[in-house]
Amino acid sequence: MTTFTEHSLLPALEGVSKSFGGQPVLRDLALSLAENGITCLLGPSGCGKSTLLRITAGLLPPDSGQTLLNAHDCAMVFQEPRLLPWLTVEENLGLALRGNKNAEQILQALKLVELGPDIINFLPRELSGGMAQRVGIARALLRQPRFLILDEPFAAIDAITRGTLQKMLAALIRAQKITCLFVTHDLDEALLLADRLHVMRDGKLSLEFVKSAEPFSAATVKEKILARLQNNQG
């Protein structure tokens, strides 16, 4: 049984704007994250979600405004596992330890993502898509981050594996008390995981949903968000 926790808010972005080639992508954005919870960012492809996420992680400087998170406290999981194909699983994980192998820490991280020690000498091409993404998550966890930032990490994974990984991730985030920003274009995934859900459109964010102790109908929330998105497109 899942118990509800009310999350305090951590300001992450303040007045952030970003343009590419004179085309504004983000306009004067502010974002706060649910502390030790999952903040989901939902929006159609190409709406600037990944740009916002990279600015939050300190990988991209904003044109104006500021990032309030320390980049050293952030770890990132990308859409594709982004494992180096010439390194074994153990070596890929060692990168998070700045190139130093620490077998005990690595095995512990693999255990967290429900992988056994038998794969440490595998190369990424010898792993399934789901296993590779688990290794990508383990690598991020090895940095012992305060903030975990995920860019549509399950988008390229089959539906059955995706369901398993979503549950695993949600349990991990809560157990490890990590503040998480999760970007997705899948409304069902967002509703399943989010403690707070923002929708992004026209370079702006709107808060659409905050998980509360009160029971809620996912179908109603979904309908409301879809209607909002469709009205906007129209």
Partner: peptide
């Protein structure tokens, strides 16, 4: 670009960046 971004996200020092990436 993806590997450069990975190195930045891992805050990888210059030597491991050179040898591993």
């Amino acid at each position: 670009e993806a590997h450069r971004e990975l190195a930045a996200s891992l805050n990888l020092p210059p030597l491991p960046y050179f040898t591993h990436i």
